[in-house]
Each structure stands twice: as structure tokens, then as C-alpha cells.
Design a protein around this nucleic acid. Sequence first.
DNA 1: CCTTACCCAAGCGCACCGCTAGGCTTCGGC
DNA 2: GCCGAAGCCTAGCGGTGCGCTTGGGTAAGG
Lengths: 157, 157
Amino acid sequence: MLTHKTRYALRSLLYLAEEKGDRPVQLASIASSQRVPPKYLELIMLDLKKAGLVKSVRGPRGGYRLGRAPQEISFGEVVRAMEGPIALVPCASLNYYAPCGDCHDEATCAIRRAFAILRDRSSELLEGISLAEAASWEKADPALANGAAAGATERPA
Amino acid sequence: MLTHKTRYALRSLLYLAEEKGDRPVQLASIASSQRVPPKYLELIMLDLKKAGLVKSVRGPRGGYRLGRAPQEISFGEVVRAMEGPIALVPCASLNYYAPCGDCHDEATCAIRRAFAILRDRSSELLEGISLAEAASWEKADPALANGAAAGATERPA
DNA sequence: CCTTACCCAAGCGCACCGCTAGGCTTCGGC
DNA sequence: GCCGAAGCCTAGCGGTGCGCTTGGGTAAGG
């Protein structure tokens, strides 16, 4: 399960992605529209900023904008920035590897292997979904919500 | 990340799957071979028993065996029994659905949709890996560990 | 120079995780 | 027929991390 923090981050980033004007969006506006506790959102935005996913402008009329074009920010990157590893066991993580100490031999461990495959597929999928694409879903007809979508969301066979 | 409990459960079940004789395996034997704290393993085996994944025999010479043939027990089932939902957000879970309350409209929520796709793929994969298959991996040549394997483990294109 | 907004550190309550303690029940064997 | 080996079960405990708040600090526009 993702933490609340990650979900808040995704919602806020989606909101920024949908924002049209080039004026930065204030935290208070994000917080109220996405129903995130404002002070908590500060922490989240701080993390997102450190990860380069948003840029901030200080002072009056300040606020936040995306650090990159919404096509260039993937769900995978957000999850990794907020949550840490995508793999479900530490020994199967690429970016946050740690020995799990459970098995006798990591090289042959079936658990590691199974979850390494899962990690591959998960990050492949999550990296294929950009904020831009996700934002476009929210505007589409709900009736299409389970139908076909672009690239990464297609199921192979 | 999976909890320790789930990983212990998987290791213990794999151990049972590899066991040949039809005598039940004692908890102490599982615990020492898999390096799981024995009293903690008791709790785990209890949960596995409630889930029907193992059967127990009481009294002297008692112990545990698999509740079903190792081909019939999947990683997915074990994870669900120990961990709960496989989905990363509650509103995208099939077996443990709960509204997340984050978005304004679940039907169009891009986050829900993205993680529903991920949940589909994950459970498809985890349900395709049986204890029997996993056990066979551990016996195979480590050099093959990244190579081809049966059915569920194949990557599509 | 004052107000607006973001920056940042500290801390709090709670839940859950990993594990232990200690007793109870079943059942084979002498 | 009772002893002891094994599983069954409940309670609880220390630690960690999550969700959120408090309370300030600092850049910058009017």
C-alpha cells in the first residue's frame, strides 16, 4: 500500500499538470482543491522539490510549478521519490538494494527472483505513465475508463 | 515492501514444498532451517492454517504439511493471506476494496486507474507462480537464474 | 518595511510490526 | 493412565514510522 503522502503527491502533481496559466500555483490552492492538510502539503512539496519534480517561487504571488514538462514526469518517479523502492523485497530492488537475509543464497532464491520479475514489470508500467497521460484520462469520458488507452496502459495479449 | 511475516511465510512454505517424506514437518525444524524465530513462526503457521495453506498435526511427531499440492498454491495467495491487498491503493483493490477518499470522482480518477492496471498485472503474475515452480527454481543452476523459465515468468516481448 | 508566501525543524499520538511470555490442548508412548 | 512432545492461543511490549501540527524562519513584491 502506498502511503498517504505519495497519494497526496500524485494528486497535487496532477493538479499542477492540469493547470494552464504560467503563474505558479499556491500551496493553499492545491491544498484546498485536493483536500490535503496544508501544513502537511508543505512537507510533501518540499520533498517533491528536492526530487526536482516541482520548482517553487517565494514571496507574494509565489507558489509551485512542475519541475519538468508533464510528459516527462512518470508515476514511477513520483512513487520512488516519496515511497522509496518499488520492489516488494529489499533484495530485489534496483535503486534501493539491501540484502534481505532471509534466504541462504540470494543467487538462487526463488522469492527474490519472483519479486524481481514483479519489480521489473511494475516499474516498466509505472514509468510508462506520465502526468500528462494521466491528466488526459481524467478529462476523458468515464465510460472509456476501462477501455483502450495509449502506450503503456495496453495489456499484452 | 512486504512484511517480514510474509517473507517468513513464503520461505516456510517453500521449505514444506521441498520436503519429500509424508511425515509432517515440525515447527522447530522449519524455524531452524529458515532462521525464523520459533515462537513467531507459530503465529505465522496459525495464519497459514486459517487460510488453508497448511494443515497441522498435533501431539508428538506432529507438525505441518501443505494444505494442498504445491502446484496449487500460488505466491499471490500467500501474499494476500499474510499481507492483505495486492493493490497499492485501497480503491484499486478487488478483494479488499475501500474508498480512498482522495479523489473527487473514483470513476475518472487517474491514480485509481493506473494502480488498477498495476494490480491486475501484479496478481496475474503472482498467481502464476506456484510453490512447485518456485521450488524448482531453487534447485536449478544459478547461472540460469536470469534466463528463461516456465509460463508465468516469461516477459512478453 | 510589512505582508505574503514558501522553508524548515521538532514533536506528538497512534497504529502496526517483529517478537516474546506463558499458559492450554491434543495425542503418542512407555 | 499419565508423561511429555508437539501445536494452539492470548496478551503484551519496545520500536518505528506515518499522518499531521506547531512555531518559527526567510525570500521577495507593493
